[in-house]
Amino acid sequence: MPNSEEKIDKQNALTNLTGTLRQRKSSFFELRGNVSRRATLVLGILGGLAFFGIWELGHFLTADASKRFLPSPQKVVSTFWYLLTEKGYIYDIVKSCYRIYGSFFLVCVVAVPLGILMGCFAKFRALINPTISASRYLPAASFIPLLLVWFGPTDTQKMALLFLGVIFFLIALILDNTKAVQIELVEAALTMGAGRRRVVLGVVVPAVAPAIIDSMRNMIAVGWTYLVIAEIVAATDGIGAVMMRAGRFLKVDIIMAGILTIGILGVLTDLAFRLLAHYAFPWNRERRS
C-alpha cells in the first residue's frame, strides 16, 4: 500500500524535523541538560557581569553622602591595588596564607590517618568516633578566649583556632570516604592473599585517595571562612586584621578589597586541589559506568 508508506515517510520527516528543532533550540531550563565548554564560559562570564552590574547599580542609586558605604567595583579594585603597592598588603596576604595552609597541613597530618584507620577498623572507630562526632558541635569561635590564655596573641593561637574549626569535620568526611570504599575490593585482595597492612596501604588508601582530596578541597574552603574570625581578635597582621582596622575608620573600600582577596585566594586554592586530583589520579578522570 503506497499510501501508507507515504504516510510513514511523512511522519519520519516530521519527527526528523522536530528532532533537529529540538536539538537546535534546547530550552534554557532543560532538565539535566548538557552545556558545551564555550557555553559554560559565556554563561559564567554573563553571571559575573550581572553581579558587578547590580553592584554598580546599587552604588549609582546610593545617595552621594552615603556612597562611601557602598563603593563601586572599580573603587574596590583600585583600593586593592593601592594596598598591594603602597601599604605592604602582600605581607598580610602571605601571613594569612601561612596561617591557613600551615594549620591545614597539620589538620591533614592528623585527620587522614585517623579517618582512614577509623574507616578500616570498627573497634578503633567505636573508641574514637563518639568523641570526634560530638566535637563537631563545639563552635570553634568559642575557643578564642581559651586559646588566647594558652598561647597569647600569637600565630599559634590563630592556627590552633583554624585547626579546631576544620579538623573534626575533615575526620568525619574521610571516615565516610573510607567506609564508602567498595567492600569487594578489600575482599578480593584478601582472597588473593593480601595481609592487613597490604589491604590498608595497597587497596584502601589508593581507592579512597581521590575522595579524600575532594574532602580536603571542601574543608579548606571552610578554613578560609574561619580566617577572618581568627584574625579579628588580637591580631596586628593578616587580611582579617587589615579589614578589622579599616572597619574602625569606616573604610568600606578596604573591607571589600579584603573580601575580594579572600575570594580570589579561595578560588585559586580550589583550582590547585582540582589540578592535583587531575594529575595525581589519571585513572579517575573519565568514569564510564
Binding site: 567498595q182 575490593l185 589508593p206 579517575n284
Partner: peptide, 11 residues
Amino acid sequence: MIFQAYTSFPW
C-alpha cells in the same frame, strides 16, 4: 575468588 561486582582495582 571472582565476585559479581567488578573488583579490578581502578587505579
